[in-house]
Design a protein around this nucleic acid. Structure first.
Ligand SMILES: [Mn+2]
Ligand SMILES: [Mn+2]
Ligand SMILES: [Mn+2]
Ligand SMILES: [Mn+2]
Lengths: 219, 219
DNA sequence: ATAATAAGTTAGATCATTCTAACAAATTTG
DNA sequence: CAAATTTGTTAGAATGATCTAACTTATTAT
C-alpha cells in the first residue's frame, strides 16, 4: 500500500503528465517542493513497486496501475471537497487544504457514503471532473474565457487554478460556477476583457484572470 | 506540532493514566503494539517537547500541555465517530478504525462544523464522553451491569470495550445504548446474568459481557 | 536476603524521507 | 560545433520511527 508521501507523488505525476504521459524530474520536484535528488530517489522507489516506468535521464511515466491509484486518490480529494461544500457548509475557497489531508484516509465506505449522499457528482466545487470508482476520469474541453470574442455569451464551468486567493477574488466579484457572462470588449493593450453578468453590468477582468476561467459557449 | 505517531502516544498515555496519572513503559508499549525500547525512546522525545515528565526507571506522566493535547485528539476521534453514525449512516461497530485516522486531520473548522451539525454532543456512539474544545472531559461514574442485583432495572449508557466483535455481539442481541434492562437472576457458578428487555424476555449475559456494559440504575 | 523474574535501558541496526555538495549528461545558444 | 546552461545523478548525511540483542535495575518469591 502506498504511503501518504507516495500517494502525493503519484497524484503529482498524474497531474503533471503531458500528452505522452511523461513528467520530468525537475517539474516533479518543483511541484512537490522537494529537491531534485529527493524526487529522483522517490521515483526510483516508486519504480520498484511498479507505480512508474523510469530510466536514468528519461522522463517518468506512470504505469496503468500508477494511473489508477492516482485517479482514485484524486477521486477521494474531489469527493471530499464536494462533501465539505455541499454537506458541511464550507466555501469553495476553504476546502483544498482539508481535502489534501482527507484524500489519504483509507476507508472505502467513508467515500462511498459521501458519493451517495452527494448523488454521485461528476464535478468538484471548482468544476474539475471526479474520476469514477474504477479511476476513469472524463476529459472535458472547455474554452478559456481569454479566447472568447466580444459579443459571445458564455457560462463559467470550471477553473484552471483553485488557489484560495483566486477563489476569494472570484467571491469578491460574485463570480461562481454557472454564472452566465457576456463578453463586451477586449482591450488590445493588456488583453483584459470587459464582461457583464447578473448585477455586474461592467466588470473588467485581467488576462491573468480570464485565462484561468473555463467556460462553455452559449451563443 | 505533534506527528501522527506522537499523537497516538499521547492518546495512549491519556487513556492508560492511573489515578496518579502514571503509566509504565511496558503498558504503553503493549497498548501501542511496539517494543519496549521503541516506547522508551519515544517517551524521551516526548519529554523534550514537554508533553510528558519522565525519569529513568520511573513511570511516565503527561504534563498539563500533554493532557490537553491528548484530550483534544480524543475529542476529534469521538466527534468523528458520532458524525459517522448520526450523519453518514455508519453502524457503531464500523466507526472506530476510520476515527483512528481522521482524529489526526488538522482542520479546526472541519471538527467545529461536525460539532455544530451534531448539536454539540457530550457522548460518542459508545457512551464515552466527548471532551470540550478546551480539552476538559466530564468524568462519569456508571455502574457495570455485572455488579447489579436481581430485581434492579437499569439503562444501558456506555461500554468499557468498543471492539467491533463486542459491538456486533450487542447488535445480534439488539442491545443498544438507552436499552432498559431488568436483572432477573445471577448464576452463582459462572456469574452470568439473566436479563429481560424489549422483545427479549429472557437473555443470558456472561460475566465477560456484563462487566463491559455500564448502566445507570433506574430503580 | 538471595535468587529468579519482570521491567526498563542502551547499543546498534534498518527503513523511509529528506537534505546539500559535487559531479555528469543533455540541451540550448552564440 | 563548442561553450554555457539546465537537468539529472550520486554520495553522504540527518531525522523519525521502528526493531533485536544484550545489559541493568527493580520487584517478587522462596
Ligand atoms: Mn483541491
Ligand atoms: Mn495530499
Ligand atoms: Mn473509538
Ligand atoms: Mn490514531
Amino acid at each position: 500500500m502506498a504511503s501518504t508521501t507516495e500517494e502525493n507523488y503519484l497524484k503529482a505525476l498524474y497531474n503533471l503528465s503531458n500528452t505522452q504521459g511523461e513528467v520530468n524530474i525537475s517539474e516533479l520536484a518543483l511541484s512537490l517542493k522537494v529537491s531534485m535528488p529527493t524526487a529522483n530517489s522517490m521515483v526510483k522507489s516508486l519504480q520498484k513497486s511498479d507505480w512508474v516506468i523510469y530510466e536514468k535521464y528519461k522522463p517518468v511515466t506512470l504505469t496503468p496501475k500508477g494511473q489508477k491509484e492516482a485517479a482514485l486518490i484524486i477521486r477521494k480529494h474531489r469527493l471530499t471537497e464536494m462533501f465539505l461544500v455541499k454537506k458541511m457548509g464550507f466555501g469553495w475557497e476553504e476546502v483544498h487544504e482539508v481535502a489534501e489531508q482527507i484524500e489519504h484516509i483509507h476507508a472505502p465506505k467513508f467515500f462511498e457514503r459521501m458519493d451517495e449522499m452527494l448523488g454521485y457528482p461528476t464535478m468538484d466545487p471548482h468544476g474539475s471532473p471526479i474520476p469514477d470508482n474504477q479511476g476513469r476520469m472524463k476529459e472535458f474541453s472547455y474554452t478559456p474565457l481569454s479566447t472568447c470574442k466580444p459579443g459571445q455569451t458564455v457560462q463559467l464551468t470550471a477553473l484552471t487554478n483553485s488557489s484560495t486567493e483566486f477563489l476569494e477574488f472570484l467571491n469578491s466579484r460574485k463570480l461562481a460556477l454557472g454564472t452566465e457572462l457576456k463578453v463586451l470588449s477586449r482591450e488590445v493593450y493588456d488583453l483584459s476583457l470587459v464582461v457583464s453578468y447578473a448585477n455586474h453590468p461592467n466588470e473588467t477582468l485581467s488576462e491573468k484572470v480570464s485565462e484561468r476561467l473555463l467556460v462553455r459557449i452559449l451563443k
